[in-house]
Nucleic acid binder design. Structure first.
Length: 515
RNA sequence: GCGGGCGUAGCUCAGUGGUAGAGCGUCAGCCUUCCAAGCUGAACGUCGAGGGUUCAAAUCCCUUCGCCCGCUCCA
């Protein structure tokens, strides 16, 4: 199982196109880098995944399991705008973080964050005409360059590249052999910029959000002021975000426009680590429950040196995509962010982000509590919806040359865009009429979950094969026997097996299988 | 952003200077009482786009866009 050959990404992409899961955006104009559209089946698949998340996170959080405080988990939704006050992104750190100047190396083609490049220079300060040695901290270049520098100068000291005057003719790049290969620093704007107002100028510039999280943080106070929620509780949101990725790559995995499913779960600092572990473990189970079971899915705890400065713990749910194998690509990050974000908004907006927790503090004579005011800590399970769809597609793609349909999609019934197909075995002897009647009943009952197919054309094998590629889990076929004993066959996509059930039991069968 | 590969029908690909092709899919008809994706037929292409060379360009040259792979990046 663990050493199966990776699936072909090309084959998956071909199937996605020809069955209408994913198309390239603006394809008739030659496409545009980093943007993808969903076709009919893809749009429904994506909606089903989003709905599954919403159902399990907002409507019935964590499958009704109690939290570490012994109470049901409480989560409420919001829907915030893509364009927000520009100060939002100053507070969040994105304006700074998304504007990192980079330097390139002409010799090695390497690229480095300008403010992270250090240089070994003589400790004496006497440099003369000799070259100095640039490096990136905590990379192999550090030891290597230090060795060379010490050989040249003896005792060395480290200064920031930015402290040296340009052009850097005598600077040897971190991985280069010759001096003078580093370019001037260049700005990369990773946030999409736009202008608010029809006659807007530079003063009216705004950004398309690079994450949905900040809309939640910015409205957290409104939510606890107006909705009677009590800490601990979560706020959830799905929606589009935008990042001008340097290198969009790997089909839809790194797109410039993408959809997130984010939870910010607010709690008291003393309970935060327990909640962190709770969310981390449940989110992992959730991904398994929608069909990503097996060794392609892992939960990876970040090492201390990998953590953002404000995070006390972070883990990723990762999937082994065909293009990342044998490595993994991130589906969801679960981060304990302290109270960094709310504190930042408090600082930048001047609005107090403190929650008045009336269940804490000393007990007063009348039996109530004095209360405790604090800026809540937050656990952030942040998932990529499009990445989830991609993982589901990759996991579902199955090749079996022994079948009439050598390629088919084993999409979990809960997510499958086509839930069921109703077929007359042949288009005669009254079978189409019976099938149509069943079809109408099934559409009535299950049509809100996904597509229900009806088809009486061509041979039954051809129709089954077509459903295999579309990922439809069950086909119900009306045959001659149906007319005499009121039974139909259920043909299962994954095994090709057939079972007879009563025509009256079809709805019950689907209700059980579709969840 | 750099380097490499690729771009011809919905999909997979053949065609390397001289009338745009195949298989699959799609559609129609036939056949078919459970894999018959079988049979017959049909539709579908400014050969990614723009420019150039040539009597003639899918084919050669330049530019550009997109996809894939490797670097780089991923707050």
């Amino acid at each position: 199982m663990s050493n199966h050959t990776p699936k072909s990404m090309d084959a998956i992409m071909s199937l996605c196109k020809r069955r209408g899961f994913v198309y390239q955006t603006s394809e008739i104009y030659g496409g545009i880098n980093g943007f993808w559209d969903y076709g009919p089946l893809g749009a429904q698949l994506k909606k089903n995944l989003r709905d599954a998340w919403w159902q399990d996170v907002v409507m019935g959080p964590c499958w009704g399991r109690k939290g570490p405080n012994g109470r049901p988990v409480s989560v409420v939704p919001v829907d915030t705008t893509i364009i927000q006050h520009p100060k939002t992104w100053e507070a969040s750190g994105h304006v700074a973080g998304f504007n990192d100047p980079m330097v390139d190396c002409r010799e090695t083609k390497g690229r480095y964050r300008y403010d992270h490049v250090q240089v070994f220079v003589p400790a004496s300060g006497e440099r003369g005409d000799k070259p100095v040695f640039a490096y990136m901290g905590d990379t192999p270049s550090e030891a290597k360059q230090r060795k060379k520098a010490e050989k040249t100068f003896g005792e060395v000291t480290s200064v920031a590249l930015s402290s040296l005057p340009q052009p850097w003719d005598r600077v040897i790049g971190p991985d280069a052999e010759k001096p003078g290969s580093l370019t001037e620093p260049r700005q990369f704007n990773l946030m999409f910029k736009t202008y608010v107002g029809a006659t807007a100028g530079e003063d009216d510039k705004a950004y398309l959000r690079p994450e949905t999280a900040q809309g939640i943080f910015a409205q957290a106070k409104n939510v606890w002021d107006t909705t009677r929620v009590k800490v601990p509780f979560g706020i959830a949101q799905t929606g589009k975000s935008f990042r001008n990725e340097v290198t969009p790559r790997n089909f839809t995995f790194r797109s410039r426009e993408f959809e997130q499913m984010e939870i910010e779960f607010f709690c008291h600092e003393s309970e935060a680590l327990a909640w962190y572990a709770y969310w981390r473990d449940w989110r992992m189970e959730w991904w398994k429950s929608i069909g990503l079971a097996g060794d392609n899915l892992i939960l990876r705890e970040h090492e201390a040196d990998e953590l953002a400065h404000y995070s006390k713990a972070t883990s990723d749910v990762e999937y082994r995509f065909p293009f990342s194998a044998p490595g993994y690509g991130e589906l969801e990050g679960i981060a304990y962010r302290g109270n960094f974000d709310l504190s930042q908004h408090q600082k930048f907006s001047g609005v107090k982000m403190e929650y008045n927790d009336t269940e804490r503090g000393e007990v007063l004579p009348n039996g109530s509590r004095r209360g405790e005011r604090y800026v809540p800590h937050v656990i952030e399970p942040s998932a990529g919806l499009d990445r989830g769809v991609l993982a589901v597609l990759c996991e579902a793609y199955t090749k079996d040359e022994s079948r009439p349909s050598p390629e088919f999609m084993k999409i979990h019934p809960r997510l499958a865009p086509i839930k069921a197909a109703i077929y007359p075995l042949v288009a005669k002897e009254g079978m189409p009429e019976v099938a149509e009647k069943l079809y109408e009943e099934i559409v009535q009952r299950f049509g809100r979950l996904g597509f229900i197919e009806f088809d009486e054309k061509q041979s039954i094998g051809k129709r089954y094969a077509r459903m295999d590629e579309a990922g439809c889990p069950f086909c119900f076929t009306i045959d001659g026997e149906t007319l005499t004993n009121q039974t139909v066959t259920v043909r299962s996509r994954d095994t090709g097996s057939q079972d007879r059930i009563g025509i009256d039991n079809v709805a019950g069968f689907l209700a059980e299988k579709l969840g």
